[in-house]
């Protein structure tokens, strides 16, 4: 009984935090069903304008194409980034040496400069390669990121080295140790990495906007930006677009958060 009572403040705290977090989402959902005028009046009640908002959203914008391009970019980025960065992070930690620590430090410098400064030389590079408007040009600069490498390096620190040694004794090749031991154990880390990478790729705006010169390849954030660029902003339709654009990240998180269960039990048999 007493232990039950002790739980109350915890749930109360969680409820308050959750309420604050969900509030704006609620506003977004409700606004997607309201007229522009009602959105501006901050109406908190659902309206009946959902269909009209959908029509005005699709009247000028190809939502399907934008969702498709965003999905391709985000999925491609996430898969490649997880592979490339986790291998590197594992390498930095498991085979660490002073030189590798130094290299890690140097690589981290790359995330410390604002993108606005490197964007133009990067554009020039891809233009010289004839890769303007290509999905690869969108993805290539973001698959090896110092942040993800650091994430896997830090996670690998809690990966028991006994396992590696034992596997070596069993004659397992180095890459097999990574693939068969590390990857499955680190499922929670991969889940976290997948969420943040997908989210970053999905919301990435400045670079896709610049490298995808032809707007036939536009992504969801670009579509939303178009919505706010006119003289008359239809806030109801805008909120519907924003709602649609937010869903994939939410779904991905909801699915992957199940992986946040102890990874140890699976390996140490």
């Amino acid at each position: 009984m007493t232990s039950k009572l002790r739980e109350v403040p915890k749930y109360a705290f969680l409820s308050i935090v959750a309420l604050l977090s969900v509030g704006p989402l609620y506003f977004m959902v409700v606004s997607a069903t309201n007229t522009s005028q009602d959105v501006l009046a901050s109406s908190m009640l659902p309206g009946t304008n959902l269909l009209a908002n959908w029509q005005s959203l699709t009247e000028f914008q190809d939502v399907g194409a934008a969702m498709y391009h965003s999905t391709v970019n985000a999925v491609l980025t996430t898969v490649l980034a997880l592979v490339v960065s986790s291998i590197a992070g594992y390498g930095f930690e498991v085979y660490h040496s002073p030189n590798k620590d130094r290299l890690m430090w140097v690589l981290m410098l790359a995330m410390m400069i604002p993108f606005a400064a490197t964007m133009i030389p990067l554009f020039q590079l891809f233009a010289d390669l004839g890769m303007v408007n290509s999905a690869f040009a969108v993805v290539l600069p973001v698959i090896a990121t110092p942040l993800l490498i650091l994430l896997f390096r830090q996670s690998a620190r809690s990966f028991p080295h006994e396992i590696i040694e034992a596997a070596r004794m069993d004659g397992l090749k180095e890459f097999s140790i990574f693939w068969k031991m590390f990857v499955p154990t680190m499922r929670p880390t991969y889940a976290a990495a997948a969420v943040i990478t997908f989210m970053a790729a999905w919301n990435n705006f400045l670079w896709p906007k610049v490298i995808l010169v032809n707007s036939d390849y536009q992504t969801m954030p670009m579509l939303i930006s178009n919505f706010t660029g006119g003289y008359v902003i239809d806030y109801g339709a805008l909120m519907l677009a924003v709602l649609i654009a937010s869903l994939p990240t939410i779904v991905i998180f909801f699915v992957l958060q199940r992986s946040f269960v102890a990874g140890f039990t699976g390996v140490v048999k």
Partner: peptide
């Protein structure tokens, strides 16, 4: 392959 399709010939 999706990427290849969507970027094919676009340059």
């Amino acid at each position: 392959s999706l990427a290849a399709c969507s970027s094919g010939g676009s340059t």
